[in-house]
């Protein structure tokens, strides 16, 4: 794999609640490579989202470090454009599908003259041609996720973080948007971290899978994903290797030490 993108070393984090310290991340060390699709798999409430918030710059580590070896500047925001597809609804309700994508371009300080073209391009890329003027309340949940995905990708992020992005969708919508993610990512050089508790999703989408323990999260194991690229998700769900891998990881995830 290519050059190193992200280096996490001995990351520790705990929250203080009513005077008690609640450890969340326990000595996490992890390397990521440029253009990689990494899945972080862990049980619910293990601290995955905390890790994601820290990577997004919305929270800080107690000790340990996060560095981007490629770009040795100090300020995290200077080095990398980061975008997030959140678990929760994150569209601005009073902006249309188009307006939401445009806003992410405004927020990333992308110059005015290319905003319209880029917004339209990404709305089409996620299969929402003709829905430019729809408000989030007029779209289905799956469509709203597509808009959120388009808004995140339109900023051409170096790092895309996804926090259990499709957990609330029905199985069919989920598969459709997962296919979209795989297709778009295969065309881009974006590095993606997908945080999830869904074993199938982690395997279907990623290159590598990091399995975390219960809280406080430690790295239990890191698995290379042997499934070939490019991937056809429709075919994948009928594939025996895929199901063997799901079973293996499922056992590993649920095993208590």
């Amino acid at each position: 794999m290519a050059e190193q993108f992200l280096k996490i070393r001995n990351a520790n984090k705990s929250f203080t609640k009513e005077g008690n310290s609640l450890p969340v991340l326990n000595d996490i060390s992890l390397d990521m490579y440029t253009g990689e699709f990494l899945a972080i798999l862990g049980p619910s409430g293990c601290g995955k989202s905390t890790l994601l918030n820290i990577l997004a710059g919305q929270n800080s580590l107690d000790d340990g470090s996060i560095s981007y070896p490629d770009k040795p500047t100090k300020n995290l925001n200077d080095r990398n454009r980061i975008a997030v597809v959140w678990q929760e609804e994150s569209l601005i309700p009073w902006k249309t599908a188009y307006g939401n994508i445009e806003f992410s371009l405004i927020a990333t300080q992308i110059p005015d003259k290319c905003r319209e073209e880029v917004s339209i391009k990404w709305l089409h890329a996620v299969g929402l041609k003709g829905f430019e003027d729809y408000y989030p309340s007029q779209l289905s949940q799956g469509m709203r996720k597509r808009v959120a995905l388009a808004a995140a990708l339109s900023t051409h992020p170096h790092l895309l973080l996804m926090d259990e992005p499709f957990g609330a969708l029905d199985v069919y919508s989920k598969l459709q948007i997962e296919k979209e993610v795989v297709r778009l990512w295969e065309q881009l050089d974006t590095t993606i971290i997908l945080v999830t508790h869904d074993v199938q999703e982690a395997i279907a989408l990623s290159d590598r899978i990091v399995i975390l323990t219960q809280r406080p999260a430690k790295i239990k194991s890191i698995r290379e994903n042997p499934l070939p690229r490019p991937r056809n998700l429709d075919a994948l769900y009928g594939n025996i290797d895929f199901h063997n891998l799901v079973r293996e990881l499922w056992v590993e995830l649920t095993q208590q030490d």
């Binding site: 997004a56 710059g57 919305q58 925001n77 454009r81 980061i82 975008a83 997030v84 959140w86 994150s90 806003f103 992410s104 405004i106 927020a107 990333t108 300080q109 900023t155």
Partner: peptide
């Protein structure tokens, strides 16, 4: 939060 991450 989203706006802050994007750099608004």
């Amino acid at each position: 939060k989203n706006a802050a991450v994007l750099g608004a």
